[in-house]
Simulated scan of single mutants.
Amino acid sequence: MIAEPEPGTTAEPEPEPDPEPGTVRPGGRTARVRTAVLRVAGDVLAEQGFAQLDLADVARRAGVGKTTVYRRWGSVTGLVADLLGDMAEQSLPRTETGSVLGDLRANAALVCRTLADPRQGALFRAVIAAAACDARTAEALRRFYEVRVAEWAPCVEQGVARGELPVGTDAGEVVRAVSAPLYYALLTSGVAPDAAAGERAAAAAVAAARGGVFVG
């Protein structure tokens, strides 16, 4: 934790210059600040929702000077965008089982585990709700899913190459077809989908793909 200065001392040290992309050394002060702030932002989103996310409060809870937080992220939506970007980077890589159905079952199981997690499920609900009325949050959420779809799309492409799916199958659409009913179940019922729901989603997506629904 980065402590605030003692009373009577300078209110806050001179801010460090923003580093060039890709130059931040792991373990450096900038990386520690980002890690602390994003962790707190995620906690607040999961516990209290988007409406309660405040940069000054996040800075206080993270033990970081609020000037640093405002300078780096600029706004709540900027902070949420960075949080989603970090989550996409930290997400587990795809599983390759040797069959498109096995791979997409693994994808569905990962989505179900994520949505069932007390922190992650609540965080996603908060961000999805915010995205419905905030354009920048919606764009950040879109980018998050673009990264995740791109990670799993090769499983479908390999299925096409093995002859399991028709040539011309849109890999991204198949991956989306797996997760879409799982998120819908969460948002409409408030209950995270279980393993059986994941199995059904994967099986339905593969059956549709084999039938040529996603060719075009």
Rank of each mutant, 00 (worst) to 15 (best):
R32I: 05
A185V: 11
L141M: 14
D194T: 13
T35W: 02
R148A: 07
A209E: 09
P7T: 12
D86Q: 15
E173P: 01
S75K: 02
A202P: 01
V111W: 04
T23W: 03
L110I: 13
A56D: 11
D134V: 07
L141G: 08
A46S: 08
R113F: 01
F50D: 08
T35C: 00
W73T: 04
L45M: 12
A126W: 06
G198F: 07
V160Q: 08
V175N: 05
T97P: 00
L165R: 07
G212H: 00
A3Q: 06
T169G: 12
V127Y: 04
A108T: 10
V215P: 02
S179L: 14
A177W: 08
E89C: 03
R200S: 11
L141P: 08
E6V: 14
T30S: 12
V206K: 03
R71W: 01
E12A: 15
G8K: 10
A209F: 04
P13S: 14
R176I: 08
R142G: 11
V76Q: 06
Y184K: 10
A203C: 10
A41C: 09
A122I: 05
V215S: 01
A88C: 03
P21M: 00
E47C: 13
R113T: 14
L187E: 13
R32A: 12
E47M: 14
E139W: 13
V174P: 04
T10W: 05
R29H: 11
R136T: 12
G27M: 12
P154H: 06
T10C: 10
V191H: 13
E173D: 06
M87P: 08
W73C: 04
C155T: 08
G65S: 14
A11H: 10
R32H: 11
R210Q: 09
P5M: 03
V33E: 03
F144P: 09
T35M: 11
V167M: 09
G163L: 01
G28D: 11
V149N: 05
A116S: 15
D43E: 15
E173L: 12
V167L: 05
P21T: 11
T97A: 12
Q90A: 15
N107I: 10
G65H: 03
S189T: 15
G22I: 05
I128V: 15
A185W: 06
G42D: 06
R142S: 15
Q120S: 03
L110D: 01
F214D: 01
V111Q: 06
E146T: 15
R60Q: 07
R210M: 09
L187K: 14
D194A: 14
S99A: 04
R39H: 10
D86W: 09
A205D: 02
A208Y: 02
G74R: 00
E14P: 03
Q158P: 10
R25A: 14
A11N: 05
L55T: 10
V160M: 05
Q52V: 13
F214S: 05
G8N: 08
